[in-house]
Computed example of a mutant assay.
Amino acid sequence: MIAIQASAPGKIILMGEHAALHGCPVIASSLGLYCNVRVHPRHDGQIKLRLPDLSIQRVYDPLQLADYTLQVRQAWKHYVSDPTSRTFAQVKGQDLDHVVKCSIGEILLRLAPQDWRGFSLRVRSQIPAEAGFGSSGALAVTLVAALLRLFRLPAMDNPVQCLAQTIERYVHGQSSGIDHNTSLHGSVVERRSDGEGGFNLTPWPIENLSVLHGLQLYHTGAARESTGQVVAATRHRLAGKGNPLLASMCRNTERFCSLLQQTRPMPETLKAVLRDYEADLEKLGVVPAAVAEVIRAIERAGGAAKICGAGALCGESAGALLGVGAPALPELAHYRRIDAALGVSGLEITQK
């Protein structure tokens, strides 16, 4: 029996989170932690899911998943017209296999029902969830790529990035497009608005990026809230013409873009940019006090750090933490050091 395997890396946002949803640039890097999907046909017409990371094993009828996805589509339209935490909760729901079900449903809805068929699908992921490491983006990319191959749908008519962005909206409410595109393409990616409602992606070859030398990455723990919940609760703070906080975030992202173009490391300038963007994120209200205290300790020791991703509204954790020049402090001992490589290759898909 033919099996299709897809693998895609996680990501971290180096600079520009939150502001990207308001038209500012954002820069992200792929990360050598992977989501792996394996799918093969079944002859009974059923869809069997094995998600050992979530301790889930379920069997669905294709019609169930198509109907589920149609309901999510409607909830998302309602959220777009009224973007609040309450309406987002109706999009995200409570199901642990929400991303998987929506990914399958979006594929099924692009087929005539007579062309539906059963399959078994297994997902394993090394990427921490709800922590700014791009777990849902990598999952959407691998699922879509594998299922497009299974159903032999032409990529020209069903591009992976478009389908993955649709699914990301069902997870985050609003999607900048950076997460799944970084997992898809790999390396370091810059996303900029094209001024017409779309965006342009610029890859930066990892071997030329001296600014990345010496970066340290930590996992502070999963946020209490999902990315979508954090965005829905704070996006109003960046709204309005001439918003000073948004202007500061955009300015600091442009400073980071300038650093990407340097041929030699500039650690003190990098520290200044990280400190300033972290200050912006704290003003936005997405850095819990416990994490801010650790960042202050890093700064007192001569380093700098910022959260990467949505952050959190409260609690002891805020997901990914990016640092430079941070010594081995007792405060950091509570966090997991992530030693995975930056700028790795993107989606890979094989058929056996």
Rank of each mutant, 00 (worst) to 15 (best):
I2D: 12
P9E: 01
I13C: 13
L14V: 04
L14E: 05
G16A: 04
E17V: 12
L21H: 09
G23A: 09
S29C: 11
G32L: 11
C35E: 01
P41V: 11
H43T: 13
K48V: 15
L54S: 06
L54M: 14
I56F: 08
V59Q: 11
D61W: 10
A66Q: 05
A75W: 07
S81F: 10
D82M: 07
R86V: 15
V91A: 04
K92Y: 11
G93N: 08
D95T: 05
D97H: 01
D97P: 02
K101Y: 12
C102N: 11
I104C: 05
R110L: 07
A112S: 14
D115Y: 10
R117H: 14
G118S: 07
G118K: 06
V123K: 00
G134Q: 06
A138C: 05
L139Q: 04
A145K: 01
L150Q: 04
R152G: 06
V160E: 02
Y170D: 04
G177Q: 03
H180V: 04
G186E: 07
V189Q: 15
G195I: 03
S210Q: 13
G214Y: 01
L215V: 08
Q216C: 06
A232D: 01
T234G: 05
L238V: 04
L259W: 01
R264A: 14
P265Y: 02
L270A: 07
K271P: 11
A289P: 03
A289R: 09
A290S: 13
A292M: 07
A292E: 08
R296M: 07
I298N: 02
A301Q: 06
A310R: 00
A312P: 02
C314N: 10
P330S: 08
A333Q: 12
R337A: 15
D339F: 04
L347C: 09
L347K: 03
I349C: 13
